[in-house]
């Protein structure tokens, strides 16, 4: 490890990267097609519907990518299950693992440390997952539950009305579209900033596509994880000299920037629209 050449360590497995690719494509399409309906009275929404081939195409795309969403949700459950089996921990022990994805007390401490860092304190001692990354992950879980169930009700309204009164569909519409607005608004602003647009990553952190980061970066970004890997001796096993392939980096950047730009344009349109409403009332 005293070599001058940079060393790399895998952060996301191929399975995780592919899952995230599914998330990106489906989420972006769902957001674009859904927001076009939510804001149908706006020119930009009508333009989207026109360009994509009309309202029925929006509906077909939205339903197709809803299925994709349920599919990657299912894939994630498989991934978690495999990880759990590999970890040889009890189910609760796995779920509430101190380095797992469920927020714990240490995240509250890290949040306070982060706020201190913003005001001039030291950079916090982040581990494998920061609290905002955990929030991103948990929000997708929560989002799929809320948006997915209300979306299924709207997809199969007659079946829904056999279980609950028909006006529940009006409530489901509000929950579905506002939760989606929250999700899209969050991903296209907060997640984009926290992950890609923040000054040390700007304009894009390609790790979710290329999979690995340099050990130096790990040491700087996630010192606790680095220390843990050193202490357990795993670092020696995991490091690789293979840098991500340049073509993969280039494709990741082009694709990633396209997605970030599309999401940003959509959210800016929505923000302008919403401010114009507030202005009118």
């Amino acid at each position: 490890m005293d070599n001058n050449e940079p060393l790399y360590i895998e952060r996301f497995s191929v399975f995780q990267r592919m899952t995230h690719l599914l998330v990106i494509v489906s989420f972006l399409t769902l957001a674009v097609t859904g927001m076009a309906l939510k804001f149908a009275m706006e020119d930009w929404a009508q333009w989207i519907a026109y360009v994509l081939g009309g309202f029925s195409v929006l509906g077909a795309l939205h339903r197709f990518f809803a299925i994709v969403t349920f599919f990657y949700f299912f894939l994630t459950m498989i991934l978690l299950y495999t990880k759990w089996r590999e970890s040889e921990k009890s189910l609760l022990g796995f779920i509430f693992d101190s380095e797992g994805l469920v927020p714990n007390l240490n995240d509250a401490k890290e949040l306070i440390a982060t706020l201190k860092w913003f005001f001039g304190g030291p950079r916090p001692y982040y581990g494998h997952w920061t609290y905002w990354e955990k929030f991103d992950f948990m929000a997708v879980f929560w989002g799929i539950a809320v948006i997915g169930s209300s979306g299924l009700a709207l997809w199969f309204p007659v079946a829904f009305s056999n279980l609950l009164p028909g006006y529940g569909l009006n409530i489901a519409t509000i929950i579905h579209s506002d939760e989606a607005l929250l999700a899209a608004g969050f991903i296209f602003t907060i997640h984009f900033y926290n992950t890609h647009l923040r000054p040390d990553k700007f304009p894009l952190d390609p790790v979710i596509f290329v999979g690995s980061i340099s050990v130096d970066e790990l040491k700087h970004e996630r010192p606790r994880e680095y220390d843990q890997l050193v202490a357990s001796g795993e670092l020696e096993e995991l490091v690789q000299r293979q840098a991500p392939a340049p073509w993969l980096k280039r494709m990741s950047t082009v694709f990633g920037l396209f997605v970030v730009a599309t999401g940003s344009v959509l959210i800016v349109s929505i923000i302008i629209t919403m401010f114009s409403y507030i202005g009118k009332h």
């Binding site: 916090p124 969050f186 040390d200």
Partner: peptide
């Protein structure tokens, strides 16, 4: 949600810029 994370992000921007200008910034450990 947006109030909390919006504020979080707004506070992060100047910190991020300062660290970027200074170099890699201090390491937590």
């Amino acid at each position: 949600t947006f109030a909390f994370f919006g504020l979080h992000t707004i506070l992060w921007i100047p910190r991020g810029l300062i660290d970027k200008i200074k170099g890699s910034g201090s390491n937590g450990k």
